[in-house]
Structure formats: C-alpha cells, structure tokens
Design a protein around this nucleic acid. Structure first.
Lengths: 153, 153
DNA sequence: CGGTTATTGGTATGATATCCCAATATCTGC
DNA sequence: GCAGATATTGGGATATCATACCAATAACCG
C-alpha cells in the first residue's frame, strides 16, 4: 500500500468538499495536468481511499427536526450479543451513526426523526423491542453547530 | 416552498447513496425519462434540498484510528459565550461534528485523530486553551458500527 | 553516468450533461 | 363535464467532460 503524497492529499481535500469539480478544475488546484490527476483519482478509488461519491441533503428541508444521541447499555457484552445488536441497528434508516464505546455505556447512537412523536415511535416499535438492552438514555441536540464529513488530510 | 413528492424522494434516496449515477440510470430508477429527471435534480439543488456533492474518504486509509466523543460544559451559557465557543470549534478540522445539547452537558463533539498522542495534542494546544470551559469529558469509540450520511426519505 | 522505471502532459474519442421545443398530462373555473 | 390554462414530461441536438492512448519528461538505482 503506497503512501499518500502531498498531491494525493490535496485531491482528497478538494473532493471531500466538492466532488463535482471537473478534472480540469481539480488538476489546476493540485498543480497537475488532467491526465495524471485523473489517474491518481482512479487509483485512490481502486485502493478504497475514496470510498464513494454522494449527495448531501438538507436535514431541515426533509422536515427532520429532531437529532438525538442515545446511550445504550446491554445486559451482556458477549460478542454474540454485540453482533446481534449491531445487525439490528444497521437496518434502521433513522440511525445514522452507531459506535461501540469505552466506559460504562456500550453504544452511542445518533438518530434523526421528524419530531418527538416519530422519535417516540422509533423507540417503542424498534429500539425498546430489542432483547438484551439494560438501559437507554436519550440526549437531544438543540442545534447542529458543526457537521462535516471531510476528514482532515 | 413546494412539497417533495414521491419521485423527488426517490431521487434523494439514490443520490444520497451514489451521486455518480448518470442521469439515464437515475431516471430509470425513479421511473422518468432523462429530461424531467434532470430538471428535478437541478431544482432540488437550487432549493438547497441537495446541498452538496462530496467524496467520502476512508478514515483508516488516512490513518485516523481514533474517534472521540467529547462532552463539554461551559462556565456560563450566555449567547455570547456559546457563539464564541461555536466559532472556535468550527475552525478546527479535527472536529467533525458539534451539537448544542439539552441536559447537564452543553456540547457534544466528535473528534478524529491519528492516535492518542495527536489527540492529546489537540486537547492541549486547542480545546483546553479555550476560555470559559468548565469541564471536558472524553469517551472513546472502539469501533464504528454504523456511519451513514443518508437521511431517511 | 547510462539504463530502467514511474510519472507526466497532450490529443483523440466516446460518453454524458444540458438545453430547447413539442407533446402530454394535470389542474381550475365555469 | 368541459374548455382553457398551467405544469410536467419526453426526445433530440449540442457542448462539455471523462477517459484511454502514446510520447516525453523526470526520478531512481546500480
């Protein structure tokens, strides 16, 4: 696995902010001509450094006004229990992020919903119906101060 | 602001997963021909429903092995204090997400770093140097069970 | 310093986005 | 239920762009 040089990192920097740049524009920004720039981008894709290209959608425009962080503790933490929980979580579109955590809470989830009522529905019909959950604690986000997908390069 | 109909939502669904679909492919998936599909996409962009197009980069490939959630309490919560904190946070590339929260913690941050040493550097040279912070509590993510940018449509 | 390998830049080709106009469908008032 | 008006659709033409190829340059190594 070859290292990422400074030009590769520049490419990642710009594409993380705007993937609709033309090869010409991107090449200009990173100081290459179109051909080598294109080749590098394809290589980054093949190596999985660039994993996908996506459109980001405005949460408010979709009417999703509620963001919740949920801390979850499982009754048991055997690998089998963890895997079962992870599989269930992954199916639900409301759950955007889920992390296995250190400390006295096992999982941290970020969930979005249209309003408190639909969040309640999510809890009642999905989350609390899972077996093996010892405790659930919801914290609500009043506002999103920063949200970025762009990793530091 | 016109409502999003079922076709608009299908467009958002597919573009949130892969923005490199050609108009022909997207049109086929949502059951339109290319022209109206293209017009709808442009309209969604102009209305800000689609906010941007980006490339997602693999965190491990960049060597960013540490994900941390940081709970922060400020000494005072006047609007001026909150704004000052938000401005500082927003400048730092290591901070990918920041939320103003309900409950007894004011902010929740998600921060990435290469390793514990560079996380410590972030804490010492940036976060703890801010004025008006009453307490900081770090929780480390052992693994990312789910990470999605795709909002439910 | 000479030979080898990797990287670059320019050009040609094919695919795709984008625009325009006619046709169709939907809506509205009577 | 119908006629006019409005919004939406579909197809074709054009311009833009991605992509592949090949020669030239630069970096590397004994």
């Amino acid at each position: 696995m070859p290292e990422l040089d400074v030009i590769d990192r520049k490419i990642l920097f710009y594409l993380q902010n705007d993937s609709r740049l033309t090869m010409q524009e991107l090449a200009d920004k990173v100081g290459l001509s179109v051909s080598p720039c294109h080749r590098r981008v394809k290589l980054l894709e093949e190596r999985g450094v660039i994993s996908r290209y996506i459109a980001t959608v405005d949460q408010k425009a979709l009417g999703l006004h509620v963001s919740v962080f949920i801390s979850i503790k499982l009754a048991r933490q055997k690998e089998e229990d963890l895997n079962r929980f992870a599989r269930a979580i992954s199916k639900w579109d409301e759950v955007l992020e889920c992390y296995l955590m250190t400390g006295n809470r096992d999982y941290l989830l970020r969930v979005v919903a249209a309003d408190l009522a639909s969040y309640e529905t999510f809890l009642k019909t999905k989350l609390t119906r899972l077996d093996g959950i010892a405790s659930i604690e919801s914290s609500f986000a009043l506002s999103q101060v920063k949200y970025s997908i762009a990793l530091p390069v």
